[in-house]
Design a protein around this nucleic acid. Structure first.
Length: 454
RNA sequence: GUGGGUAUAGCUCAGUCGGUUAGAGCGCCAGAUUGUGGCUCUGGAGGCCGUGGAUUCGAAUUCCACUAUCCACCCCA
């Protein structure tokens, strides 16, 4: 095991046996987002460091200690691997004048994100997000639509045991008063707080509400509630959102303790949380960020969005018993060969069938018949066909359905195949291919239709 | 950044009080009257016991350091 090196810490390979789960999940997410009127945007993995410093917030943990920041050359600008998706999308929207178009702008994206953290269950240094951003609407209808999309996505994926928690953290008008009240409350009880919370007292008192320490929970229980300090506009906004969610029959609980760790959030914040995958149970997190666009140099424009952690979604699905994204075996036909002549012809036949969209495999290892059969069984081939001296001589072969063991005779014009091998580059190639495709067409018809089911 | 657990075959793990050729199951490869998979049986390949030190006649086993990994805190998706 003297490997030269391994994947960087907290980063993982996605292997063929797992990749179909990703693909199916991504496809469902795309469809749902597009039903809600969102269009995909793709932005660079790297951004100028100041985008995140300003957008996410200088004081946040993400910016202070979790970013991969570097300069490619000595005096080139500082770049950062994106730790989240929103800042880059908003930057792209501004740079490409998307906000000059009809509003709202509704964007969705898949990104790989990077945070230099200590890995644990559901937390990686490279992770993948599906996210959406809705730019331009200040109204709670937008909040409701975004949350509804989040719920809809989870439903479509069949994710259970997830609860929606919402809160409002107010706007720049009403938040200072709350902070002041909160600080005063905890300051008077400072000695009873745990050490980390004593630090939080100066840094971010709202975080104390989230502490899991027993004493802190007891103290926080009677702390001022942020919702009581909202200004009139924020109160109305939140009330309308709750009304809309209720009307849409989207279950939620108001959790005054939800405080997001990124500075750009205002008013509505929400999380979809699960208990089934360990301590990192937030499967989707988001909220409103009415000040962000302006902060990045754009016109004053409200917005909101969310991000889902794809690894966490898959963890939840794995924790549920049924595996709805189980990979399907992809081999329609395995051609077992015996002898050089048959192997060469099988290669040509496989080539032609593949060009007619059949998944065909044949021996590349010079293995025995028995070994080839075993292999065909292992990869889940639906049919096998032995090609040996007898078949070459008679032009007749047996097609075996692996699930049942039944065989049916196939008439293979082997002379014809031989001609094909010489004419692959000739003008009539397509005609020949089609004829060969027809040979197994009726036998494989069932599988053809099943290819398009999902 | 803080704390705890773990590190033996491709995978999941045994390995006694330190004792000489290092074990199982699964997986992989190959056979079981010579052209048909799954089940069963038999055999085979595959290990610097994470790395480096220390103790000892002798270390997978004890001690130290490092690294990796897992879990939790923190933070977040």
């Amino acid at each position: 095991m003297a490997l030269l090196t391994k994947a960087p810490r907290g980063m993982q390979d996605i292997l063929p046996k797992d990749v179909s789960r990703w693909q199916q999940m991504e496809e469902m997410l795309r469809l749902t987002a597009e039903v809600y009127g969102f269009g995909e945007i793709r932005t660079p993995t790297l951004e100028h460091t100041e985008l995140f410093a300003r957008g996410v917030g200088e004081g946040t943990d993400v910016v202070q200690k979790e970013m991969y920041t570097f300069a490619a050359k000595e005096d080139s600008p500082s770049l950062t691997l994106r730790p989240e998706g929103t800042a880059g999308v908003v930057r792209a929207a501004l740079e490409n004048n998307l906000l000059a178009d009809a509003l709202p702008q509704k964007l969705y994206y898949f990104t790989n994100c990077y945070r230099y953290e200590k890995p644990q269950a559901g937390r990686y240094r490279e992770f993948h997000q599906f996210g959406i951003e809705l730019l331009g609407s200040p109204l709670p209808y937008a909040d409701a639509e975004v949350i509804a999309l989040g719920q809809s996505v989870l439903d479509t994926l069949g994710i259970k045991d997830v609860t929606l928690e919402i809160n409002s953290i107010g706007c720049p008008q009403c938040r200072p008063a709350y902070h002041k009240a909160l600080k005063a409350y905890f300051e008077s009880r400072r000695d009873a707080l745990c050490p980390t919370c004593q630090e939080r007292l100066t840094k971010n008192p709202m975080r104390i509400l989230d502490c899991k320490n027993k004493e802190c929970i007891a103290i926080a229980k009677d702390a001022p509630v942020g919702l009581d300090y909202l200004c009139g506009e924020c109160t109305d906004h939140f009330a309308t959102l709750k009304e809309l969610l209720t009307s849409c029959q989207i279950a939620f609980t108001v959790n005054p303790k939800i405080v997001r760790g990124l500075d750009y959030y205002t008013k509505t914040v929400f999380e979809f949380v699960t208990q089934s995958i360990g301590a990192q149970g937030t499967v989707c997190g988001g909220g409103r960020y009415d000040g962000l666009v302006e902060e990045l140099g754009g016109p004053s424009t409200p917005g909101l969005g969310f991000a889902m952690g794809l690894e966490r979604l898959l963890l939840v699905l794995a924790a549920q018993k049924e595996d709805r994204f189980a990979p399907e075996d992809g081999c329609d036909l395995y051609i077992v060969t015996m002898g050089d002549a048959a192997t060469k012809r099988a290669a040509v036949l496989a080539h032609l069938l593949r060009q007619n969209d059949y998944a065909v495999e044949t021996d590349l290892m010079n293995r025995s018949l028995k070994a080839q059969m075993r292999y065909a069984n292992k990869i889940g081939a639906r049919y096998t066909m032995v090609l040996g001296e007898n078949e070459l001589a008679t032009g007749a072969a047996q097609l075996k359905e692996m699930a049942t063991g039944e065989t049916t005779p196939v008439d293979l014009n082997l002379t014809f195949l031989e001609d094909i091998s010489n004419k692959l580059d000739q003008p009539h190639r397509e005609e020949f291919e089609n004829m060969i495709g027809d040979i197994l067409d009726d036998i494989l018809r069932e599988n053809e239709s099943s290819q398009y089911l999902q």
